[in-house]
Design a protein around this nucleic acid. Structure first.
Lengths: 233, 233
DNA sequence: TTAGTTCAAGTCATTTACACCTTTACTCGA
DNA sequence: TCGAGTAAAGGTGTAAATGACTTGAACTAA
């Protein structure tokens, strides 16, 4: 074997942008406070160096679990960021993933001195180029919302059509006609009606639906390394 | 500074899948023969280790230039591949780009013992997981063809509508109605009619068009590190 | 019982997509 | 020089998708 082990030109890190919906209508994401230089004390995306025996997606899932306690239902690679000057001193190439979690999962997440949730519209100044990264992740989320069915990853097992519509309205930031929304969703095959109804509101109880597991909701093409353990298919 | 320089868990490499259209109707891509282990003698995607003072996109452009002599008009990041076992011995994480070149550029490319063009449908068994990578790049190309205007990157300065349609037909592998194609393209703003015509055929000379530079043809969103020097915007 | 709310379903006009047809303009060979 | 061949350019009709709006049903709370 004549392979020379070159001195590394860059550190390899994996980070993740996690989205959730708080109060059912605003996009929130968890950030972690940096506990060392550079950017000590500033907020940053959860992540860390790639482990020796884990794939990129596994690394994203692990660091997520360790820093925020979250295990997202949806995890997909976003982009690899590698400009020379994006980190002072040692050069870092970051493979960034993006994830969606349900509101109930998000509430279980550890929140404290070093982990806090922020509104996606009102972020502080983040470490490194993480503001840029979040902006791109937001674009990807909104874009993907229009041609795939990832909205389901924000919801639990059972949900009403109104809840699903509210997810779309929150992410796309515009109201949708309930009647037309119903027609379009029913035309597709992405959800299945159950025979349960949600009682309790002061109105006619809406029917509960569940996602159709046999339909590909992500539309990511023939990707070999398929997301996290619980990746949406 | 208390940053510890960890021993690298993986080598960082950048590779590129380059597509071109030969004879105006079949997808071709250049491969390079490996001159060292592992996979010595087998065909692989052009690429190499990331240089110390270049961004990921610059590295893709440079290795492309060195191995094939090509400077693609379109260059976009495809995916970062990083499963643990994708390379024997030393672990390698590859950030893969994909590129489009015009047929006339492709002809200038060096072809010889160590560089050869292959039909995208009839590839040999490649080194590493490069067959998988090419398959994914093909999916991305065909997918992107349907919602963006990247087809223009296959063509030169001036082209007829029939030529543009042939690009679509070749990539999507199905015939398109010339009349409807004309209307759809004209409805968009991606091309501009010139007052030139292409004479020589035994039929009415078709009008020549050029791409509208002021329109974003790639639709990649707010990406910071924008492709290669000549990236299509 | 009644008012209020939302689900659920239906109507209608407009736009868009697609298949097919006709005319026009040019080149080339007889 | 004339006719045949070819593809551009433009047109028409039908089906599907979309958006704005309307109606009725089901339930809660007062």
């Amino acid at each position: 074997m004549n392979t020379t082990i070159a001195t590394p030109v860059a550190q390899l890190a994996v980070s993740t942008v996690i989205f959730s919906l708080r109060a059912g209508s605003t996009l929130w994401l968890p950030l972690v406070r940096r506990i060392r230089e550079p950017f000590e004390g500033q907020w940053a995306l959860p992540g860390g160096p790639l482990g020796a025996n884990e794939s990129l997606a596994d690394s994203a899932a692990r660091t997520l679990q360790q820093t925020t306690g979250l295990t997202p239902r949806y995890l997909e690679q976003l982009y690899a960021f590698g400009t020379v000057d994006r980190s002072p001193s040692q050069r870092v190439v970051s493979v960034v993933y993006w994830a969606l979690v349900r509101p109930d999962e998000a509430e279980q997440a550890t929140e404290g001195e070093n982990v806090r949730w922020f509104s996606a519209d009102e972020l502080p100044e983040l470490a490194f180029d993480h503001n840029t990264i979040v902006e791109y992740a937001l674009w990807r989320l909104r874009n993907k919302m229009e041609y795939s069915r990832i909205a389901h990853a924000f919801l639990g097992e059972r949900f009403t059509l109104a809840q699903l519509r509210e997810v779309y309205e929150a992410v796309l930031r515009r109201p949708l006609d309930p009647a037309n929304f119903r027609r379009q969703i029913e035309a597709g095959q992405s959800i299945v009606a159950t025979d349960e109804y949600l009682a309790g509101g002061r109105h006619r109880p809406p029917r509960l639906y569940r996602t159709n597991e046999s339909i590909d909701l992500a539309e990511n093409g023939p990707l070999p390394e398929q997301g996290a353990p619980h990746a949406l298919r």
